[in-house]
């Protein structure tokens, strides 16, 4: 089991209120991603759940039991750290076995569990090596192995992929998602990368300055962002924000239109713009444009769109997919 409840949890470091007050419900078996810019409090929140920091106020419940004052080890959670935090003086086998040894499990049982975990994670051939003899991806898998042998009620991941190169990141993303489907255990995953959030999460928690901006499934956040912050943070490239007369004509302070919801044409359209940078990726074309009377706009065309620096092109926003925000930055619903 692994349901986690945060009740009015707050954290103060000296003068700084890192987390003013957070309420959150995480259901058993969910893959929850905390996402936000650096310094938004997402890692602190994870460490509060882990018990590595004391809360300044509020309560943390795991499976309905109050663990606010419990030691990290007593909470039944496992954590994968950003630096992997492998023990450099121990072999892979001993690294994975360490939590079991601390739990005073019998040696034969430990061996069995370690070898099972190693099989799942493709580490069987590396069990006798030291962490320093492994590649980044292998180290990552050892860290995960050390977490899964404990059969925790929930896994905590603190930016686990940020030290890997882009290609490996893609692979590990799939492996972690796959692991979640196999184990069906609650996972809480912290990242600043909204692509990781969108691809892996059942539920995304968008954090900003220690506050929850919005909680929802990836597509909910994409389709109906609650405010300007979420709208700008979720989606890549970022949503274009337009103020001024165009927004007013839509009865909004700010109008938001995603790059993929701008229809590009060489012949006619609502707006006219000059191409500043054209990125031809083959499958997509991203144009960074200077649009007359609007300003800087990014547009995406599926497939190849033949435009070069300095070309004049036409754009039309897809009105059905327009986002409108009031003067407080909150989304207006029709």
């Amino acid at each position: 089991m692994g349901s986690i409840t945060l009740q009015k949890v707050s954290k103060v470091f000296g003068e700084a209120k890192v987390i003013p007050s957070i309420d959150l419900e995480i259901n058993n078996g969910e893959f929850v991603v905390f996402v936000g810019p650096s310094g938004c409090g997402k890692s602190t929140l994870l460490r509060l759940i882990a018990g590595l920091e004391d809360v300044s106020g509020g309560h943390i419940l795991i499976d309905g039991k109050d663990v606010t004052d419990a030691a990290p080890a007593a909470r039944g959670l496992a954590m994968v750290f950003q630096s992997y935090a492998l023990y450099p003086h121990m072999s892979v086998r001993k690294n994975i076995a360490f939590p079991l040894k601390m739990a005073k499990m019998e040696q034969p049982a430990i061996d069995k569990k370690v070898e099972a975990a190693a099989r799942v994670l493709n580490l069987t051939d590396y069990l006798e090596r030291r962490p320093s003899q492994l590649s980044g991806g292998q180290r990552q898998r050892v860290a995960i192995g050390r977490a899964i042998v404990r059969e925790p009620s929930a896994f905590l991941f603190d930016e686990p992929l940020s030290n890997l190169d882009a290609a490996l990141r893609g692979t590990m993303r799939l492996e972690i998602s796959d692991l979640h489907h196999q184990l069906k255990t609650t996972m809480i995953y912290v990242t600043h990368d909204q692509v990781e959030a969108m691809t892996m999460a059942d539920k995304i928690v968008v954090l900003n300055r220690g506050n929850i901006e919005q909680v929802g499934s990836p597509l909910e956040l994409y389709k109906t962002p609650r405010n300007l912050f979420v709208a700008g943070f979720i989606g890549s490239p970022h949503m274009n924000f337009v103020t001024g007369s165009y927004a007013q004509s839509k009865n909004a302070k700010t109008a938001g239109i995603r790059p993929e919801h701008l229809i590009l044409s060489k012949d006619s359209g609502l707006w006219t713009g000059t191409v500043k940078v054209a990125e031809h990726l083959g499958a997509d074309t991203f144009l960074h444009l200077d649009v007359d009377g609007i300003g800087q706009v990014t547009a995406r065309a599926g497939g190849e769109f033949g435009a070069q620096y300095g070309d004049r092109v036409y754009l039309t926003p897809d009105e059905a997919k327009l986002h409108r925000f009031d003067d407080k930055g909150l989304a207006l619903r029709a």
């Binding site: 882990a50 590595l52 030691a71 990290p72 080890a73 959670l77 496992a78 954590m79 750290f81 950003q82 630096s83 935090a85 492998l86 023990y87 450099p88 003086h89 360490f98 939590p99 601390m102 739990a103 050390r146 404990r150």
Partner: peptide
């Protein structure tokens, strides 16, 4: 790295075990 000591705490090591098994060898 502090993260390694925290990892050992997460793994269930008490203060004494943390010193004997993790800190001292490192």
């Amino acid at each position: 790295p502090g993260e390694i000591l925290e990892a050992s705490r997460m793994d269930g090591a008490g203060l004494w075990q943390e010193i004997v098994y993790v800190l001292t060898p490192m």
